[in-house]
Design a protein around this nucleic acid. Sequence first.
DNA 1: TCTATTAGCACTAAATTAGTGCTATTTGAT
DNA 2: ATCAAATAGCACTAATTTAGTGCTAATAGA
Lengths: 161, 161
Amino acid sequence: MLKLTKRAEYGLTALVHLTDHAGDVVSAREISEHYRLPHRLVGEALKDLCRAGHLQSLRGPAGGYRLARSASSLTVGEVIAAIEGAPALPECDAMALVDLGFDSLADCDVESRCPIRSPLHRIQEDIWRQFERTTLEELAAPDFSLIPNRNVAKTTLSASA
Amino acid sequence: MLKLTKRAEYGLTALVHLTDHAGDVVSAREISEHYRLPHRLVGEALKDLCRAGHLQSLRGPAGGYRLARSASSLTVGEVIAAIEGAPALPECDAMALVDLGFDSLADCDVESRCPIRSPLHRIQEDIWRQFERTTLEELAAPDFSLIPNRNVAKTTLSASA
DNA sequence: TCTATTAGCACTAAATTAGTGCTATTTGAT
DNA sequence: ATCAAATAGCACTAATTTAGTGCTAATAGA
Ligand code: SF4
Ligand code: SF4
């Protein structure tokens, strides 16, 4: 239903936390206890981010993670790619091929034609573009312009009341 | 992994098709055969869109669907909301609450504070905003500016070769 | 040496999604 | 009238995906 995985969610939460405490070494345990998240899953996410070079890890007691790059240069796209693997670019789907008269991908000679005549592709491109241009720094800063829109919180609140 | 459901994909495909043939009455069968999609699932999607008032349906032989509104006023957001149900606005997650010192949603007095201090929320807001401002008309029009970016098709092609 | 950490995988259980089965209703054509 | 082809609605199963944990190894401070 178009949502990120928990791994990605926890990873982003952890990174925002690390952005708030730039320079500090923080363990997966500290983060998971602070936000009351499953310890090991947070660890999995941080490990992935480490492998991708976005975090630096230190082992042993007093070990943990810290940002390997500035929060202003790290994008949400990079984070999600590191954790969920794929840049979310799925196979060419039915509409594009059929509309172009192709029977299979092999028939596609991109240079001259298509331009993504598939709603799915185009939407995922849009989303991904947004991910790639959003930095962690931006993500970490509260955005007060959000409040008046769509009444997110009000809806959530009344539903739970 | 952040993708739309097949239902939504088929619904969007069908709508783009209907946009291309504005005014015509087209049956679910025709669409599914044209794009080689599962007949019944396309039907489910179209039904949802009809219930939401975005399509008009005609029964009986020679029946089918046609747009109930102009393609330029129908947004991707409305389409996805109609098919996948939720406007994808999930519950407030850990980070926002903890950072604000709340123990539960009930403690949140939105007016004065939060502004969505949760990466997940903010990202889903971004995505949704994009959905709400993309019309079907825009979606149906090929966008040649996409080709030079990210080499979508090249990647897909070489992977399948 | 002990303990707390990260690293790496594999595995199970839960949740979600895809697709179909079945029945009813509508409506044009014969 | 009857038939055939379409939508309407919903329940159900199988497949896929995801969440979370188990287990073992390596690292390093006390
Ligand atoms: S306003 Fe912030 S703290 Fe309140 S419910 Fe929404 S996300 Fe949670
Ligand atoms: S360029 Fe278009 S037709 Fe070719 S693989 Fe990509 S989406 Fe499919």
